[in-house]
C-alpha cells in the first residue's frame, strides 16, 4: 500500500495535471454541461461532428473539447474520453457504458467514486441525445 493508490496510477494523474483537449470549441455541433452534485465536479463538453461533404458519415465525431473543475478522477476521465471519442460515431458513443469508461481509465474505481468516473461520458451522451432531439434536459447530473 502506501504511495501509489491503485486509483491514482500515473496515467490518471498525467491526464489530470495535463488535460488533453481542454477548453472550448469555436463552432461545436453540440455542447452540454453536467455535474456530480455529491462531489461538486462540473464538466462541459463540446463536440464537433463531421460536416456534410467532409466524410461519408455525418455522425462521426471530428473533435471534442472539455472544460470543468473537480476531482482527479472526473477530470482525467473527461480528458481521456475527449481523445477516445475522436473518430468514433455518435452511435458508438451512445453504446458506451460504465464498464467501457472504467476500462478506458485502466484502474479499479472504488464504488463510491464511479459517479466521478462516468460524469464526462454521461454528459457527452446526453449532449448527443439532445442534439438528436431525443432528450430534453438543461444539465446532466449523476444523481439521476
Amino acid at each position: 500500500m502506501g504511495l501509489g493508490s491503485d486509483m491514482y496510477r500515473q496515467q490518471i494523474l498525467d491526464h489530470y495535471k495535463n488535460p488533453r483537449n481542454y477548453g472550448e470549441l469555436e463552432d461545436p455541433t453540440f455542447t452540454h454541461v453536467g455535474e456530480n452534485p455529491m462531489c461538486g465536479d462540473e464538466i462541459r463538453i463540446d463536440v464537433k461532428l463531421e460536416e456534410d461533404g467532409e466524410s461519408d458519415d455525418e455522425e462521426t465525431i471530428k473533435q471534442v473539447a472539455f472544460s470543468g473543475d473537480g476531482c482527479a478522477i472526473s477530470q482525467a476521465s473527461a480528458s481521456m474520453l475527449s481523445k477516445e471519442l475522436q473518430g468514433k460515431t455518435v452511435e458508438e458513443l451512445l453504446e458506451m457504458d460504465r464498464d467501457d469508461v472504467i476500462d478506458m481509465l485502466g484502474v479499479d474505481i472504488s464504488p463510491m467514486r464511479v459517479k466521478c468516473a462516468v460524469l464526462a461520458e454521461k454528459v457527452a451522451q446526453d449532449g448527443a441525445e439532445i442534439h438528436r432531439g431525443e432528450l430534453d434536459v438543461d444539465k446532466t447530473t449523476t444523481e439521476d
Binding site: 493508490s5 486509483m7 491514482y8 482527479a72 472504488s110 467514486r113
Partner: peptide
C-alpha cells in the same frame, strides 16, 4: 488536491 481525491488516498492508509 480535491477533497475526494484526498479522502480516497487517506482510505488507502
Amino acid at each position: 488536491v480535491h477533497a475526494h481525491d484526498l479522502t480516497s488516498i487517506l482510505n488507502d492508509h
